[in-house]
C-alpha cells in the first residue's frame, strides 16, 4: 500500500500542510479529512508544501479543486510550494497555474498571505 501522510503546522494565521509520499485515489481521502478539519476550525489560509511528495494522480488534484472555492469565499486561499518538477508538470497539464499560486518556497507563500492581509 502506498505511503502517504499529512503534517500540519501553523505560521501566524497561515496553516501549512506538509505532504509526504504518494497521493492517489487511495490516499486522497486522508487529505480531504485535513481540509474538512481546517474548515471546521475556520482556518482558510492554507499553504500546501509538496517538498516530500513523490507522486500525485488526478484524485489528489481533485481535492484542491473541491476545497479552493470555500477557502477563497472566506478570504483565504490554497497556495502551493516546493513542488518537484514532475509533480508540477501534472498540475501544469491540468491548467492549475492559471488559477492557483505556486511558490518555490513555503516562506514565500506565507509572506504572500501576510502581505494580502495588510491591504
Amino acid at each position: 500500500m502506498a505511503e502517504f501522510n499529512v503534517n500540519k503546522h501553523e505560521v501566524g494565521s497561515v496553516n501549512v500542510l506538509d505532504l509526504k509520499g504518494y497521493l492517489d485515489a487511495h490516499t486522497a481521502p486522508e487529505l480531504e479529512r485535513e481540509f474538512n478539519k481546517l474548515i471546521d476550525d475556520r482556518k482558510y489560509k492554507v499553504v500546501v508544501n509538496f517538498k516530500d511528495l513523490n507522486y500525485i494522480s488526478s484524485a489528489g488534484l481533485g481535492v484542491f479543486m473541491a476545497y479552493v472555492e470555500t477557502m477563497r469565499e472566506n478570504k483565504g486561499d490554497i497556495k502551493f510550494s516546493n513542488l518537484k518538477q514532475d509533480v508540477y508538470n501534472i498540475f501544469d497539464l491540468l491548467g492549475f497555474p492559471m488559477l492557483y499560486e505556486f511558490y518555490e518556497d513555503e516562506s514565500e507563500a506565507i509572506k504572500n498571505f501576510n502581505e494580502q492581509n495588510k491591504d
Binding site: S57, S58, A59, L61, G62, M65, A66, E69, I90, L93, L94, G95, M98, L99
Partner: peptide, 14 residues
Amino acid sequence: YHRLKKVGGLGMFL
C-alpha cells in the same frame, strides 16, 4: 472544469 469544480474526467484527460 475549475469553475464548475468538476473533478471526474480529469484522469481520462491526463
